[in-house]
Design a protein around this nucleic acid. Structure first.
Length: 306
DNA sequence: CGGTTTTGACCAGCGC
DNA sequence: GCGCTGGTCAAAACCG
């Protein structure tokens, strides 16, 4: 699994934060030799030493955190293996009861909204497969669940891209209409999107993305911040939700039948929950953020000196 | 005026 | 073959 490696990469800050050390000593000696021991210079040297110690401390903390994360990942992997084994023992019928007796393309896609019980349902993209097998074989399909205001009747999912609505239908298994969108860059961009309110929870919109954009996200291109590679990996299928403007995307559970994504990073619901929790606990920890900031600034200092 | 949305009609796949 | 269903088309309406 790639998670451990990825985290390892992010936390492997090779901090070389002591380039000032030698200069300090040389400077100090020189000052003493020249009998120009100025009070101001002494104070600045003291400050440098304090900063140096602080950087060392933060560096150690960073290493400890990296070690902890590695351990967590290892434990998680063990749990994951256990879970997979257990799943293998459960008969498949129990998992897929709802679709029995229904048309191939007619599985209740809203039964799994917010719930994590069908994350590995690779058929999520097969809604068209029985009708348009030629298209769906090669197309990536991902699904996003968006929490919206119940009173908000518009089936709009702000994902940064521009969409053109080309149809709306009321489907059998859901009283709420399903809206069909095409990327505004069509026909050059083949991406389609289906948005429907969840039958169970009216405040949740289910958006199914079909295909991949062959152009930049119009709003994303305006961003000056560098997006985390972790986010890029987890959200890549439709490049969904990486924009800070997309504040209403409160819950992103991107499902992709692209096996690459599933195996590398989104193999199971448990994994998603753990990753989310890990990320939120880390980002809410001020000491971690401070350590990260120190590590990055140290790295930048190194690069500017080199 | 051009782009987008709405909405009824049409088409194709599937089950009976 | 027929009816049901999901997906798409395209003309009309709408909007900035």
């Amino acid at each position: 699994m790639g998670t451990t490696n990825m985290l390892g990469t992010y936390l492997d800050f090779d901090l070389n934060i002591n380039p000032l050390h030698q200069n300090d000593e040389t400077l100090e000696r020189q000052l003493e030799e020249d009998h120009f021991v100025d009070e101001e210079a002494k104070v600045s040297i003291e400050k440098q030493k304090v900063l140096e110690e602080e950087l060392n401390r933060v560096s150690d903390e960073n290493k400890k955190l990296a070690g902890m994360l590695t351990m967590m990942c290892e434990k998680y992997n063990a749990l994951q293996t256990l879970l997979t084994d257990l799943k293998g023992k459960i008969p498949e019928k129990e998992v897929d009861v709802k679709s029995v007796g229904k048309r191939k393309s007619n599985f209740d896609e809203n039964n799994n909204v917010v719930g994590l019980d069908r994350i590995n349902d690779s058929r999520s993209g097969d809604e068209d497969s029985c009708k348009r097998p030629k298209q769906s074989i090669s197309k990536k399909v991902s699904r996003v669940f968006v929490k919206v205001d119940k009173s908000d009747s518009s089936l709009l999912v702000k994902d940064g891209y521009q969409w053109r609505k080309y149809g709306q239908k009321v489907t059998k298994d859901n009283p709420s209409p399903r809206a069909y969108f095409r990327c505004s860059f069509a026909p050059s961009c083949p991406v389609k999107k289906k948005v429907q309110r969840s039958a169970e929870d009216q405040s949740v919109l289910t958006a199914s993305y079909e295909g991949e954009h062959n152009h930049l996200n119009p709003s994303k291109s305006k961003m000056s911040l560098v997006t985390s590679p972790l986010l890029k990996t987890s959200l890549s299928p439709g490049s969904i939700g990486t924009n800070s403007l997309e504040s209403n995307l409160t819950l992103n559970m991107v499902e992709s039948d692209s096996k690459k994504h599933v195996q590398e990073f989104q193999a199971s619901p448990m994994q998603k929950v753990l990753i989310e929790r890990m990320a939120s606990s880390l980002t809410s920890d001020p000491s971690y953020i401070a350590a990260l900031a120190a590590a990055i600034s140290g790295r930048i200092l190194d690069q500017t000196r080199a």
